[in-house]
Amino acid sequence: MAEVAHHYDEKMPLEYRTEESRLNILGFWIFLGAEVALFATLFATYLVLFQRTGHGPTAMELFKVKEVMIETLLLLTSSFTCGLAIHEMRRNRLKGLLTWLIITLLLGAGFITFEIREFIDYVHEGATIQTSAFLSSFFVLVGTHGAHVSLGIGWMILIIIQLLQRGFTPRTARKVFIVSLYWHFLDVVWIFIFTLVYLTGMVI
């Protein structure tokens, strides 16, 4: 596997054209593997603890279908628009890329807004991170995902600034591609939060 010696012609998407970019993209994939292990541990903690509610409310008493569905659809759509942004980038359309990235960003911000509102609601109902093992693990699992999304928003803003300053270069293209991987990955995590936390909490 002496890939080092390969040289890419111009047909290759821009983000793959330099050796450095290819290494960074692969490295980010590996990092996502580590993130899978990180979230798996949080899921394991949650699933072990979620029926241990102490004196606090149970999952079934707490979760509301409507809010959760809004959050889910916002994030799912943002993953789609993020994919469209990459599609536009590969067609070499900077304007299309920027438009879809900004839409993604807004959807992400909407998701975070709803999540914060959800958390505040729970706290008002007396369900705080200190109430029970169930709630500690719930807030930390869902909160870690939320923190990732917030970080992704900040990161995407930095990249949009760089795109405006520098336009398409192998470096900016690679950065856009990597942030898109991150964003899709957060949707993957959310699918499991949606399933194993919210949906499961509605039946057990």
Binding site: T45, V48, L49, R52, T53, G54, H55, G56, I129, Q130, T131, S132, A133, F134, L135, S136, S137, V140
Partner: peptide, 17 residues
């Protein structure tokens, strides 16, 4: 979190394990 913010992951009350 348990030590600084009083969460209940590994405590002996409120469902901690």
């Amino acid at each position: 979190f348990d030590r600084l913010f009083d969460t209940q992951f590994f405590t002996m009350a409120n469902g901690g394990m």
